[in-house]
Every structure is written in C-alpha cells, then in structure tokens.
Design a protein around this nucleic acid. Sequence first.
DNA 1: CGAACTGCTTGCGACTTGGAAGCAGTTGCG
DNA 2: CGCAACTGCTTCCAAGTCGCAAGCAGTTCG
Lengths: 172, 172
Amino acid sequence: MPEDHRSGCPINLSLEVFGDKWSLLIIRDMIFGGKRHFRELLRSEEGISSNILADRLKTLMEVGMLTKSDDPTHKQKAIYSLTEMAIALVPIMAHLGAWGRRYLPVSEELSIRAELMEEGGPALWERFMDELRAEHLGAGFTEHGESSVRERLQKAYEDVLARKAKGRKVAG
Amino acid sequence: MPEDHRSGCPINLSLEVFGDKWSLLIIRDMIFGGKRHFRELLRSEEGISSNILADRLKTLMEVGMLTKSDDPTHKQKAIYSLTEMAIALVPIMAHLGAWGRRYLPVSEELSIRAELMEEGGPALWERFMDELRAEHLGAGFTEHGESSVRERLQKAYEDVLARKAKGRKVAG
DNA sequence: CGAACTGCTTGCGACTTGGAAGCAGTTGCG
DNA sequence: CGCAACTGCTTCCAAGTCGCAAGCAGTTCG
C-alpha cells in the first residue's frame, strides 16, 4: 500500500510530482525548447545546477514523465524523451503561461510564446501535442519538414529579440 | 529594477510564486473548501504545520494572491480572501485535477470534485469563479442561498463517502 | 595527442522544512 | 465570574534540501 503520499487528492498528488521550482522548467525546455540532452537542459534560462538537474531527471523518470535512451551517434550521450504523461501537461503549460503573463512581471520576448499559445487555444495545443508524440513517442525522429508549432513559437521569439535589438540601435 | 527573479518567463515566474508543495493546497482549500480562517486551513487533508502555513499566507499576501481582514464577530479572528489573481487559478486547478486523476493514484472520494470540474468544463469554471468573486471580492458575504458550485462538489464528495461506508458495512 | 565535450557525482555551507510546544489575548459556557 | 477552549501566530531545533564549485572517467573531434 503506497502510504508515501500525503493524500489521494489529485491536486496534491500533482504537486508531489512537480511541485517544486525546477521540474516543470525542465519539461518546459523539452517541450518548447526541443532539448533532449543533459547539457542542453543545463543551459536553461534560469541556470539550473547540474546536481539538481540530475536529481530531477531521475525523479521525473521514476514517476513516469520521462524516459532515457542512448544516442546512437555518441556513446556518452543520453536522449531524454517525454512520455504521454508529460505531453499531457501542454494545456497546463499554456494556462500557466497565460496566467503568469497576466499577473506577473514577464519580459516581452519570453512571453510571446505564451501569448501565441493562448491565442491558438486548445486546437493549437492539440496539434503541438501530436507533434511532440511523433517526436518523443514515434519510431525514432519523425521530422515533418514543414513549420511545426515549436518552430513558429521559436520564430516569434526571435522576431521579438530582433525587433528589440533594432529599436535599441535606433533609439540608443 | 526587479532582479530578484530568475527570468522573465511566465512559467518560471508562476513557479516562483506557487512552485512549492503547499501554496496551491492553501488556495485549493480556500476555493474548494471555502476555508477563510487560519485554524480552518490548518486542518488540511495533508496536515500542514502552523509555521509553514503562516509563512505561506504571508508570501501569498505579498504577491497579491490573498488579502487579510478582521472578522467583525471575533477580535482575534482574521479572514483571508482570494484576489482575482487567485480566483483566476480555477482553470489551472481544474486541469491539474484532471491530469492527476488520469496519471496518479488518486482516491475516489478526493477526486470526485476533479471529475465534476472536468465534466463541467469552462462553463462551470466560470460560474464557480463568479461565485468566488461574490464571496471574496463582493461587499461582505454575498450568500445566494441556492446550490452553488462548491456545494454541489461538496455533496458529491459526501455521497461518495457515504456510498463507500455503506459498501464496507455490507461487504465487511 | 590535446582540447573540448559527454552525463553526471561529490563536498559543503547555507537555506528551508516541518513537528512540537508555547503564547498573549478572546470568547463561550456554566 | 472563572475556567476551558479557541484565536492567529511564533519560537526552537533537528533534519532535510538546495545549489555553487569543482571534479571525473570516458568519448569525440581536429
């Protein structure tokens, strides 16, 4: 009997899984950043340290949100993949992003993705989740060349950066 | 310049606000349990201790998710109220509950609310949020006697408890 | 052959967590 | 009127977690 839980409340159990300051950021970087390797994840916007990252990857694998496999191109590289359980967090990410954008002091370039996710609504989320399934659960790397949701979000992010740099050049 | 933040990413900022194991449970108890007083919140399903509760209430007030006022009926009682910022978490709570229910070992009685929230969808969430606004932001306590969303959820919870008790009596 | 890179691990000080007990004041009840 | 119960916290302290810095064995690349 699993009495290592504080209660059987779904919200509580969810928090027991990712109720900390890092777990969801790792998932975020895998979903929105397309990161699959340890050292990629180490270069997070927020600067996670390697021992914490190792620990979180381990527990995320234990709860079934991630899987790990060998990279055929490099004997030392590991590839982390999202499971359906983690891909199912996309709508929560979208809501979290929308909420943060509304109530917290976000930066423009880092919230453009949240804005587009909010605008796109459930239809966009579903498409994104399908792409993630192909990428993480499909047979190997199913690249479908055309513009994926992640690529569109990434482009919007870079456009904001470019516009801000330009504005700074003109104004400053 | 507020450089006490790790990054301007909306998901990160959200996690900085409630990315711990207790903050959202307090909000949950206020939303779904109708709890408004310190000692009510202390009797949480998960057994929060009083120093942690005091600390979290303080930080939740600092970030603007809660307000505190005097209870006119008791000089020592404080009444905690949700702000719009906290009420706006209802859809996230619903998603969290749905996700937890799908992937984690929830108990039947504590997940019936999540089930009903999921079934009710955005329309039900909006109604619930309106009721919370009346209760927490309105002029005093706006009780509208008829069956509120919270009362319906609570009744469903009690029905499950009663059914399980009966089943145990018959089977055992 | 050496520099750079791979996924981690270790050491350690600082911070956080949380159980238990307590506190000054208030209220309800007999 | 007197006392038990209750009010929102606070303090103490041990145990655990966090996170920077450094390092490590192995691999790959030029």
